[in-house]
Amino acid sequence: MYTTKYHKASDAANAASLLGASPEAKILAGGQTLIPTMKQHLAAPSDLIDISGIAELSGVTIEQRKKLGVLKAKGGETITIGATTTHYDVANNADLAAVCPAITGLAANIGDPAVRHRGTLGGSIANNDPAADYPAALLALGATIHTTSRDISADDFFTGMFSTALNEGEVIKSVSFQAPANAGYGKFPVPASRYAMVGVFVAKSIDGDVRVSVTGAGDDGVFRHAGLEAALSSDWSSASAAGVNVGAEGLLSDIHGNAAYRANLIGVMAKRAVDAA
């Protein structure tokens, strides 16, 4: 690793100001992505700003839905997850599992135990790896990303592979979304890395809006799939998902699978996600 200066930020605002102070500074959360890239000399931040100990950035809160009218339907709670909440803590939060099992299940299948104990939601979405799992969830759940300077909708936040709407000196504090009426995630792992070759997150809001996002497959990162959204909006069933003809245009080809294979997997994973929902 190149030499770097380590800072322990006291709170989110302090982290943002330290980050803004140097153009080559970087936030350090779980370090599961950043440290390996530094070891390989692929990244050389001048300063590392460690946000791992900041209380206000960590944890899950679930706000019950205001009582109005019929209350039997599932979903609608407002879920907020702090940026430094680890994958392990998301995966093992029983309250969260009760209202949105799709996201706890997703977190439980990220990487290996070491990665899950260190890696964080904020780090995952800030990095926006084109094969990462959380971006798919946040996009399909219509989440809002809260930073030290503003709120950004997931639709605006993910701007292409390894690219986000974050400005310099901006730190993610948390994400929030409304618990869906129904949601599921189908992940097909790359055999070697076990990142997603294709991950499809399907979500239906309490208002009946359907959003479907795809990770791993796009040649420019996570994206929403209009064809699947239309099909599932009119008929929320795995048969309906399976009936969509998924094209290979805009999909990634690499040594693990070509675009045609990924297109096939999008259909299959969408079907399985609906089944799992």
Binding site: P191, A192, I255
Partner: peptide, 23 residues
């Protein structure tokens, strides 16, 4: 079922880490 060294036409290994070479 899993392993294979893959070269591109320029002689670069596309499978030179465990992210891509599947043990």
């Amino acid at each position: 079922m899993f392993e294979g060294v893959v070269y591109d036409p320029d002689g670069q290994q596309l499978s030179a880490s465990y992210m891509d070479y599947c043990m």
